[in-house]
C-alpha cells in the first residue's frame, strides 16, 4: 500500500505534465480545425499588432488639433487618395472628428486602450475570483457559504448598473471604470472555479496527496488548480469581450474614459448626435468595438469547444 502510493507520488509529476502537454496539443489542434475560432484569433492578432505599434503606424498624434495646421474642416468626411480624393488634400482615412483631430489615429490608439481594458479587468477579476472560488470550493462549510452568498448578492445586480453605481461612488475615470468592471465580473469567475474545484478535489490523486500529508496550500494550488483551469480560460476569453463592451458603455455614459482620451465608447458618445450629418464619426468606433468583441467571442467559443473534456475523449 505504502509502495503504491509512493509510486503514484513519484509518477505524479511526470504523469501530470505529460497529460497537460497532450491536452494543450489537442486543444491547439481542435482550435485550428474551427474556422470561426481561427478568424477570431486572426482579428485578435491584428488588433494586438495595432495596439503595440500604434505610435508608429498612426499618421497623426491622436490629441493633435489640426486647426491652422492643415486645411480641414470639423467633422470632414473621409479623404482617401486611393479612392479618388484629390491629392492636394490631406489624407484622412476615417475623416476628421468634432475637435478637428484625425479620426483614424484616434481609433488606432483606442485599440490599445480597449485591449488594455479587457485584459486588466479580466486579469483582476480572475485573480480575485479564482482565490475566492478556490477557497470556497476547497474548504466548504461556512467559508463556502459566506463567500458564495456575497457573490450571489453581487450577481443579483445587473452588472452594468452595479458598475455605474461603483463608478459613481469612486468618481468617473478610466481607472475607476476598470475597477468597477473588474469587481462586477468577479462572481462569474468565483463560481466557475468553485465548481471545478468541487469536482477535482474528490479525485483520487488529490486524496492521495492529502494522504501523503500535503498541506492545504499545496493541494489547492499545486494539485487542484492546474486541473480546474480549463473552464476559467474559456470564461476569461469571453469575459474580455464583455469587459470591453462594459467599458465602452461606461465611457459612452461619461463615466469611463474622459475626453480627450481616444476611447471608442467615448468617441461614439461624443458624436452620437451627428449620426446623420457625420456618420463616419459614429460608424468607425462602433465598428471597432463590434470587431473586437466579435473576435474575443469567436475565440472564446472555439476554445470552449476545444477544451471540452467530453469532446476530447471522443476524439482520442
Amino acid at each position: 500500500m505504502t509502495d503504491k502510493t509512493a509510486n503514484l507520488a513519484n509518477l505524479d509529476k511526470e504523469g501530470l505534465s505529460l497529460k497537460s502537454v497532450s491536452l494543450w496539443q489537442i486543444t491547439w489542434r481542435r482550435l485550428f480545425k474551427r474556422k470561426s475560432a481561427l478568424l477570431g484569433l486572426g482579428i485578435l492578432i491584428v488588433l494586438v499588432f495595432i495596439a503595440l505599434t500604434a505610435q508608429w503606424i498612426s499618421p497623426y498624434d491622436p490629441y493633435q488639433v489640426l486647426i491652422g495646421i492643415e486645411d480641414v474642416d470639423m467633422r470632414q468626411a473621409p479623404c482617401i487618395h486611393l479612392l479618388g480624393c484629390p491629392k492636394d488634400q490631406p489624407q484622412h482615412i476615417m475623416g476628421i472628428d468634432g475637435n478637428v483631430r484625425d479620426q483614424f489615429s484616434r481609433l488606432l490608439y483606442g485599440t490599445r486602450l480597449s485591449l488594455m481594458v479587457g485584459l486588466t479587468t479580466v486579469s483582476f477579476a480572475i485573480i480575485i475570483g479564482t482565490i475566492l472560488g478556490a477557497l470556497s470550493g476547497y474548504f466548504g462549510g461556512w467559508v463556502d457559504n459566506t463567500i458564495m452568498r456575497v457573490m450571489d448578492v453581487l450577481l443579483a445586480f445587473p452588472s452594468l448598473l452595479l458598475a455605474i453605481a461603483i463608478v459613481t461612488v469612486l468618481g468617473p475615470g478610466l481607472i475607476n471604470a476598470l475597477l468597477a468592471i473588474g469587481i462586477v465580473s468577479i462572481p462569474a469567475y468565483a463560481r466557475v472555479v468553485r465548481s471545478s474545484v468541487l469536482s477535482v478535489r474528490e479525485m483520487d490523486y488529490v486524496s492521495a496527496t492529502r494522504a501523503l500529508g500535503g498541506n492545504n496550500f499545496d493541494i489547492l494550488f499545486k494539485r487542484i488548480m492546474p486541473n480546474a483551469l480549463t473552464p476559467l480560460i474559456v470564461q476569461g476569453t469571453l469575459g474580455i469581450a464583455t469587459a470591453i463592451l462594459d467599458a465602452a458603455a461606461l465611457s459612452f455614459l461619461g463615466l469611463g474614459a474622459q475626453p480627450p482620451t481616444p476611447e471608442w465608447g467615448q468617441m461614439l458618445s461624443a458624436e452620437r448626435n451627428q449620426v446623420f450629418t457625420a456618420p463616419h464619426l459614429v460608424f468607425y468606433p462602433g465598428f471597432a468595438i463590434m470587431t473586437t468583441v466579435l473576435a474575443f467571442n469567436l475565440l472564446g467559443d472555439g476554445l470552449r469547444d476545444a477544451l471540452d473534456p467530453r469532446l476530447a475523449h471522443t476524439s482520442k
Binding site: Y63, V65, N99, P172, G254, Q258, P259, P260
Partner: peptide, 20 residues
Amino acid sequence: AQDIQAQLKDNLNIDAEIVV
C-alpha cells in the same frame, strides 16, 4: 471644452483634466 483643454496645453503648458 476639449479645444480649450488642448489650447491650454499647447499655448501655456497647463494640464487641465476634464471633469464633467
